[in-house]
């Protein structure tokens, strides 16, 4: 019983759909004239809207929209590290990733569950290689990510990494390079970039890949792949993601430039 929040009933459930024959698991529609639903080619991503500086209270912030996925990220810091954590020569990144309760089809709890904790760790691991932490002794940089609407969990994670890196740049934290992240889902042996919830399913054979990269240096900072795929498909998927990362990098640079031009 969470005494600090307004309480509802102990348990509540989502009502079943009225249809008697439950719809079989959603299967991805076949390609029509080489295009997916929505007119995209298999390797295309959804249009990205990326804006920095929307959260005035934070040191740096970024808000990203990819199709219907909406993610807000705020960066506070560098701040002094707590005494209990001891002395560290290198700075540290701390991230809290949270889906808003209304962000996914099924309502989530207020407390962070293990998937959100795992994603928080993924974001830290994806961004750490790009930050010059040796310049921030005894400091921590806090990154807070809230997903307002989730349209595809893998692409949500990729959007969060991209937004977090842009927010860090907006906060003026010294970094070697921006980190761009791309995602991809395999549908019946077909890799499709940036899949929304309708397309990506957890039926047998469904798999997804999230890859984060520093495009100027070419180094991959994070790789997260789930689901069984053949070796050939996987290497092609990794290449496809690396190509997309370069495009996303261009969008990030553009939005940072716009924001700093607007400030002057």
């Amino acid at each position: 019983m969470d005494r600090r929040r307004v309480q509802g009933p102990e348990t509540s459930v989502v009502p079943f759909p009225l249809l008697d024959d439950a719809a079989p698991g959603v299967v991805a529609p076949p390609l029509q004239a080489g295009k997916r639903a929505g007119g995209r080619r298999p390797e295309d991503m959804r249009p990205i809207f990326l804006r920095t500086g929307l959260i005035s209270q934070a040191s740096g912030s970024a808000y990203i929209e990819m199709g219907r996925t909406k993610v807000a990220c705020a960066v506070y810091g560098p701040r002094q590290i707590k005494k209990q954590q001891g002395f560290s020569e290198q700075g540290r990144l701390y991230c809290e990733f949270k889906f808003a309760t209304f962000a996914c089809k099924k309502r989530r709890n207020h407390q962070r569950d293990s998937q959100e904790k795992e994603f928080s760790q993924v974001i830290v691991q994806a961004l750490t290689p790009s930050i010059r932490l040796e310049k921030l002794p005894k400091s921590v940089v806090d990154i807070y990510v809230t997903v307002v609407e989730n349209d595809g969990t893998a692409s949500c994670l990729a959007a969060a990494i991209t937004a977090a890196s842009t927010a860090l740049a907006d906060a003026g934290v010294e970094m070697i390079d921006l980190v761009a992240a791309a995602s991809l889902a395999y549908q019946q042996r077909r890799p499709e970039g940036d899949a929304p919830t309708g397309e990506n399913t957890r039926e047998a054979g469904a798999a997804d890949l999230v890859l984060a990269q520093m495009p100027s240096l070419g180094d991959v900072t994070h790789l997260l792949h789930r689901g069984p795929v053949d070796w050939a498909q996987m290497s092609r998927a990794v290449e496809q993601c690396i190509d997309v990362c370069a495009k996303i990098h261009a969008v990030m640079v553009h939005s940072l430039r716009e924001h700093s031009a607007a400030e002057q």
Binding site: V6, A72, E96, K98, H110, Y144, V145, T146
Partner: peptide, 12 residues
């Protein structure tokens, strides 16, 4: 059941 979330995202 209304609930307001004032998290570390919105302010220091």
């Amino acid at each position: 059941v209304p609930n307001v979330e004032l998290g570390p995202l919105c302010s220091a």
